[in-house]
Nucleic acid binder design. Sequence first.
DNA 1: AGTGAAAAAGCATGCCC
DNA 2: GGGCATGCTTTTTCACT
Lengths: 157, 157
Amino acid sequence: MAAMSDETLDATDREILELLREDARRTLSDIAARVTLSTAAVKRRIDRLQEAGVILGYTVRVDHSKLGWGVEAFTELRFFGTTNVDEIVQTTTRMPEAQAVFTIAGDPDALVWLRVRDMAHLQRTIDELRRSHRVTSTKTLIVLDSWAGGEYPPDGA
Amino acid sequence: MAAMSDETLDATDREILELLREDARRTLSDIAARVTLSTAAVKRRIDRLQEAGVILGYTVRVDHSKLGWGVEAFTELRFFGTTNVDEIVQTTTRMPEAQAVFTIAGDPDALVWLRVRDMAHLQRTIDELRRSHRVTSTKTLIVLDSWAGGEYPPDGA
DNA sequence: AGTGAAAAAGCATGCCC
DNA sequence: GGGCATGCTTTTTCACT
């Protein structure tokens, strides 16, 4: 939760993170050329970022609509007074339809990012959400279009 | 938007995608061993998935709180009757605080996923959102905790 | 589509500045 | 913290099944 254990990142570190965000498969030599450093120096920096927990891992970006999961939605959940938040997250995250789960301060209590095949599937998924917790109400926002990305903070930490 | 141009993915393709989702830096030989195929065969499948647009790219997962951007929120936006949706997305996506933007069917009109340094920064960011469009109202959900991940569809497309 | 092997590219390490 | 040189691993390509 705090800043980096030892030191704050410098401009080069942030540049490297941005390059990896764009394409995590960039070679060290490619990155090295762009930040005007040697491959060894870049590798040491990346290792340090990984060690410090700034870099959590690497993943592939997939076009889910190409896989037939073309419908995206957000469902706002409200619970009875004392519902265990961990329990919500635990059961929800096991659903293959859940992309992400956010517990919220205030109203609603949680926000679930869903990805499903079609509207019928969405209906079933929402029903499942309602059943699996002590839900008092849900509201589902159906996504028409989305944009994801965003740069890294250009200024320091 | 439709399924894969040529053919549907088989179980091995989905297994490879899942392995890459867990860790996009796995070597071909590592993947090959897990799916009991040769590295060359795995490479051709991955190349084909990329060619087909199923694989969009590779990215790094970062612990934003370690970078000092520890506050996450969703802001629901409502606009005047005829506001150009593209315009909303265009201007919002230029903000470094915007992680993602979703246009929504119904109410609200859009959902913006924000990541900011602190509450003061959140306030400024929401103000900016309100100013930059013909916004009639906003509602911001502050994230207490989040979980992201989720498996790939285990069944075929 | 898959395999196996050779060539090319990239990575990892040790040593020095 | 950075660079260079070197041995090792991985990727990439190709001929063959």
